[in-house]
Simulated assay, not measured.
Amino acid sequence: MLILECPCCGVRAEESELAPGGEAHLKRFGAGASDEDFEAYMFARKNPKGVHFERWRHAHGCGKWFLAARDTATLEVFGTYPAQTKAPPAELIAAIKAKRPHWEGYE
């Protein structure tokens, strides 16, 4: 079972208490974007096997969105952080690299 800590309220919650929101740190495109950029935003996802950054909502708790780094193959959670963060925190990247030395990193 996947357990994530909500950085907003501090509760460690099982995945049944959370709602997934897809890939984190996407560059959003809207009105005025080219068809190719908007199509890539809507449909192209990395979906890697390994470390992945995702959006989650504490649906049955505080209701706030947050971001999480986890391994999609093992479900190992490296950490969570507020949704307003533009890039993963440096200490989280360091923790991932410490456990996954061959990880290519966040783009």
Rank of each mutant, 00 (worst) to 15 (best):
L2N: 05
L2V: 04
I3Q: 15
I3R: 15
L4K: 09
L4T: 04
E5T: 10
C6D: 08
P7D: 14
P7C: 04
P7S: 06
C9P: 11
G10C: 07
G10N: 07
R12Y: 00
A13E: 12
E15R: 14
S16A: 10
S16H: 13
S16W: 03
E17I: 05
L18D: 04
A19S: 02
G21T: 00
G21Y: 04
E23I: 10
A24L: 08
H25E: 08
H25K: 11
K27R: 15
F29R: 11
F29Q: 00
G30K: 12
A31G: 10
G32F: 04
G32D: 06
A33K: 05
A33E: 02
D35H: 09
D37N: 10
F38T: 07
E39R: 13
E39W: 10
A40D: 02
A40W: 03
Y41R: 03
M42Y: 01
M42H: 05
F43M: 14
A44R: 15
A44P: 00
A44H: 08
R45E: 00
N47K: 14
N47I: 01
K49M: 11
H52N: 15
H52P: 01
H52C: 07
F53R: 04
E54G: 05
E54M: 08
E54Y: 12
E54L: 08
E54N: 05
R55E: 11
R55L: 13
R55M: 14
W56N: 04
R57I: 02
H58W: 12
H58E: 10
H58M: 12
H60R: 15
H60S: 13
H60C: 13
G61Q: 03
C62W: 03
K64F: 00
K64C: 09
K64Y: 05
W65H: 12
F66H: 09
F66A: 02
A68M: 13
A68N: 12
A69G: 13
A69Y: 00
R70H: 12
T72H: 09
T74A: 13
E76Y: 05
V77I: 04
P82T: 06
P82M: 10
A83P: 07
A83V: 06
Q84S: 10
Q84I: 03
Q84F: 10
Q84T: 08
T85V: 14
T85G: 10
K86E: 10
K86S: 09
K86D: 12
P89H: 05
P89E: 09
P89W: 03
A90C: 05
A90N: 06
E91A: 13
E91H: 13
L92Q: 13
L92V: 05
I93G: 02
I93F: 15
A95R: 13
A95F: 01
I96S: 11
I96P: 01
K97S: 07
A98S: 01
W103I: 03
G105S: 04
G105H: 04
Y106L: 08
Y106E: 09
E107V: 04
